[in-house]
């Protein structure tokens, strides 16, 4: 395989019903950094029925080239249709690197492409860089529940591929007046080649307020909260901060708060300005989702809780005293009470 034939960093813009997910834009930021290190272009790949919003977004977030495949067979994700379109693009343009968000569909698509292109795929990466002398991407990812991190290379085959955790990176700055080259490819997938068909969809219950992934302030609760009713005080504090409530898996498993609020390895990765962990011990699986927050504040009764190892400010104390006190002080500061 002549590796030099393979050029450019491709980012898959994962959309749902025509709406791009943030992870695609987060990856355009990373794709740009890799492309600069490789002296190549950063490109977006958009597959769908309604593609306008994604095209606009990919332009704003700085894609040099935007490859677009449109058709009604791409209205819903299917491994067969999306895989077919993506593979045709790869065959024609030979990308060097492919970045895909580690969403349910992204991981599925990634595995299809890697097997068919006979190349390596590194899952669920949290950091990316380029080895200067070889031009290999160094894919960094947690393993063993976040206890260990590995750096992985795919040095003999191209494209080199990875899926990347949503939320692991922030979205880049939007570009002003970016001129992206648009390449529309007329690739159609026959109905009989699509083996799975979406026949219905049940939308997850709408979450009120700010989405966890987008919140700049997160107040998260764990088993130390002792019950569902006590999450109301976290919500009050979060509202005062203009943020959102998160949780550990223990709190989710206890049924105190929905799974969509779970932070960690099997939940969401978040990078807010401030993360306040209340009654959370700091198991590695939880840390895997929040250590990149700018400032971490931990409140825990147990001075030896591992959460203090990653915190910037620690309070050894009772959440049932500390959180109401913080609410009170916030309200006073905001002139909501005296």
């Amino acid at each position: 395989m002549d590796l030099k034939q393979y050029q450019d960093v491709w980012v898959f813009i994962d959309c749902f019903q025509g709406h791009p997910k943030d992870v695609g834009y987060e990856l355009l930021g990373q794709g740009r950094l890799l492309a600069e290190a490789l002296k190549q272009k950063c490109c977006a790949v958009i597959i769908g029925e309604n593609v306008d919003e994604a095209i606009k977004g990919a332009t704003e977030y700085g894609a040099d080239i935007i490859y677009v495949v449109r058709g009604e067979e791409y209205a819903n994700y299917s491994a067969d249709a999306y895989g077919h379109a993506f593979l045709e693009l790869c065959e024609k343009y030979h990308p060097n690197t492919i970045l895909i968000g580690a969403t349910a569909n992204g991981r599925d698509l990634g595995s299809k492409l890697a097997i068919r292109l006979k190349t390596g795929l590194t899952a669920d990466c949290t950091a990316l860089s380029v080895e200067e002398d070889t031009g290999n991407v160094v894919w960094e990812r947690p393993a063993f529940g976040g206890n260990l991190y590995a750096r992985i290379l795919c040095s003999e085959t191209r494209p080199q591929m990875g899926t990347v955790r949503p939320g692991a990176f922030k979205k880049p700055q939007k570009c002003q007046n970016k001129l992206s080259v648009m390449i529309r490819e007329d690739i159609r997938t026959k109905q009989e080649d699509i083996l799975t068909k979406v026949i219905d969809f049940i939308k997850a219950k709408d979450e009120s307020g700010i989405k966890l992934e987008e919140a700049e302030y997160i107040v998260a609760g764990g088993r130390g909260l002792k019950g569902a009713e006590n999450f109301t005080m976290l919500k009050e504090l979060a509202d005062l901060l203009g943020g959102s409530v998160g949780a550990s898996r223990a709190a989710v498993d206890a049924g105190w708060i929905p799974q969509s609020k779970q932070v960690g390895q099997t939940g969401k990765t978040v990078t807010p300005k401030v993360y306040i962990a209340c009654g959370i011990s700091g198991a590695v699986q939880h840390l895997a989702g929040m250590t990149e927050s700018d400032t971490i504040i931990a409140i825990n009764k147990d001075a030896s809780a591992p959460i203090f190892e990653v915190a910037d400010y620690g309070i050894v104390g009772d959440v049932f005293e500390m959180v109401p006190a913080m609410i009170k002080e916030m309200r006073i500061a905001k002139n909501l009470e005296q």
Binding site: A114, K118, T119, G120, L121, T122, V138, W139, P142, A143, G146, N147, L148, Y149, A150, R151, I152, L153, C154, S155, E156, T157, L287, T291, A298, F308, E309, V310, A311, D312, Y313, G314, I315, V316
Partner: peptide, 20 residues
């Protein structure tokens, strides 16, 4: 196997927590 582990490491924890 197209992928290979180059190295592994244990994540560093900042131990600069200011206790209040």
């Amino acid at each position: 196997s197209p992928t290979r582990v180059k190295s592994t490491f244990i994540p560093e924890r900042k131990s600069s927590c200011e206790m209040l």
